[in-house]
Simulated assay, not measured.
Amino acid sequence: MSTVVNIGFADYLQISQLYADYARVVDSGDWDLWTEFFIDDCIYKLIPRENHERGFPLATLFFESKGMLKDRAYGIRETLFHDPYYQRHVVSAPLVHKAEAERFETEANYAVFRTKLSKESTVFNVGRYLDVIVRTPTGLKFASRHCVYDSEMIPNSIIYPI
Rank of each mutant, 00 (worst) to 15 (best):
K116A: 05
G8D: 14
V126A: 01
H146L: 13
D150K: 06
Y129S: 03
V96Q: 06
R72M: 13
A23P: 09
W34Y: 02
D40H: 03
A10P: 13
R103N: 07
R114K: 06
A59D: 09
S151C: 01
I159F: 00
G55D: 00
V148H: 01
A108V: 00
D131Q: 03
W31M: 03
V134A: 09
R77L: 07
F81G: 08
E78A: 12
Y86T: 10
L18G: 08
V96I: 06
R72A: 12
A73D: 03
S157M: 15
D21Y: 04
S118C: 09
V5M: 10
V25A: 13
Q87D: 08
A20F: 14
V90I: 12
R77H: 08
Y110G: 10
A143D: 06
G67Q: 15
R49Y: 03
N109E: 11
P155G: 04
M153A: 05
C147W: 05
L13D: 00
P57I: 14
D21V: 00
G67Y: 14
N51H: 08
I47Q: 04
N51C: 09
V112K: 08
S151V: 03
E53L: 04
L69M: 01
H146W: 14
H89V: 01
R103T: 11
E107A: 13
V96L: 08
G127R: 02
V25D: 14
S121M: 07
N156I: 13
R114I: 08
V123W: 02
F37W: 02
T138M: 13
T106N: 11
V26K: 03
R88F: 04
D40R: 08
F124Y: 11
A73Q: 04
E53R: 06
I159K: 02
E105A: 15
H52N: 09
Y22H: 06
A111G: 01
I15G: 08
E102W: 00
E53D: 09
P57L: 14
K98Y: 11
R77D: 00
R72G: 10
E152F: 14
C147S: 01
F113M: 15
N109R: 15
S157T: 12
F124I: 09
